[in-house]
């Protein structure tokens, strides 16, 4: 490691403590490190030669939504995964912490999406450990953009992944939201974002109640209404499942960091929203009969 006569790239001969020449050192990038070790994750090498897979054979994650509120950002996602017309998983997690101050939510082909989340989390952690300080929120958002760009060839073959990224920007002292497209396009939004098959319905609900000055309680209720409406109108989005005790995941990110809400808390709030909808329907019925 001190002298110059070592192989320029990592090899098995250099044992498994990855150490590089200054010219080939991947720096704080974990993806770069995997590339140097010949372990990079790519679907495109073979994907180009294969026929596009049948959509019914690929597991898809559906609706995720995020919005700003007074103390930061809130991010939520349903739990259903579908393969074509079938429900393949009822308890899928689509909202994840990216690091202490940010979160990522995914919609699209579940396999590549979960791999992207895993790699993204590691990329941020690796940078933080090697450099001794975390990436800026902007830097994190750009990292995700690059990962999506690398994934584009696979997306063209049908393995589309569309994530949302939200975090608390400590330099600016406020929450920030980022939406993406399959090409790696990164779009910062001021108020709210949604992605996935039920996003159209979720977005409409959020749009009506969204204030960047909302309290955390108001923001949570808004997310719950949005996901309930998405599940009500989109068959691929899962609603609250009180029979099995499965509820959407809701996480808030503030100056204190990323925190997921208790499932019991989410369940109670869902019940309140459901009974409110139920009352409305009953009132409408009674009104019609009179």
């Amino acid at each position: 490691m001190v002298s110059g006569h070592q192989p320029p790239r990592y090899s098995a001969r250099r044992m498994s403590l990855p150490n590089f020449d200054t010219s080939s050192d991947p720096g704080p990038s974990f993806a770069g490190l995997l590339g140097q070790l010949g372990q990079s994750v790519r679907y495109d090498q073979t994907a180009g030669q294969l026929a596009a897979p049948d959509a019914t054979e690929i597991t898809h994650g559906t609706t995720v939504v995020a919005a700003r509120f007074a103390d930061g950002v809130i991010i939520a996602g349903d739990r259903r995964a579908t393969s074509g017309n079938l429900i393949s998983h009822r308890t899928m997690q689509k909202v994840f912490p990216a690091d202490r101050w940010s979160g990522i939510a995914i919609a699209g082909a579940a396999g590549p999406a979960l791999e992207m989340v895993k790699l993204f989390q590691l990329q941020l952690e690796h940078y933080e450990k090697v450099e001794g300080r975390p990436l800026s929120l902007e830097g994190k958002a750009n990292q995700l953009s690059q990962m999506l760009r690398n994934h584009l060839p696979a997306a063209m073959q049908g393995l589309v992944v569309v994530p949302l990224f939200a975090g608390f920007d400590q330099h600016r002292g406020r929450g920030r939201l980022f939406a993406y497209d399959v090409t790696g396009g990164r779009y910062e939004e001021e108020d709210f974002v949604a992605s996935g098959s039920g996003s159209l319905f979720a977005r409409t609900v959020v749009k009506l109640g969204q204030r960047n000055t909302n309290s955390q309680d108001e923001a949570v209720d808004l997310m719950i209404r949005a996901l309930f409406t998405a599940a009500d109108d989109d068959s691929a989005t899962g609603g609250p499942d009180s029979m099995r005790g499965i509820y959407p995941i809701v996480a808030v990110i503030t100056d204190d960091g990323y925190a997921e809400l208790d499932e019991a808390d989410v369940a109670t709030r869902f019940e309140a929203v459901l009974s409110e909808f139920g009352n409305q329907l009953r009132d409408d019925d009674e009104g019609a009969q009179q």
Binding site: M1, V2, L17, P18, F30, L33, L34, L122, K129
Partner: peptide, 18 residues
């Protein structure tokens, strides 16, 4: 020298965990 060892250790651990 020890900083280089530190980074090599982080790389070893992160790749192994991945």
């Amino acid at each position: 020298e020890y900083d280089q060892l530190r980074i090599a250790g982080i790389r070893h651990a992160d790749v192994k965990g991945y």
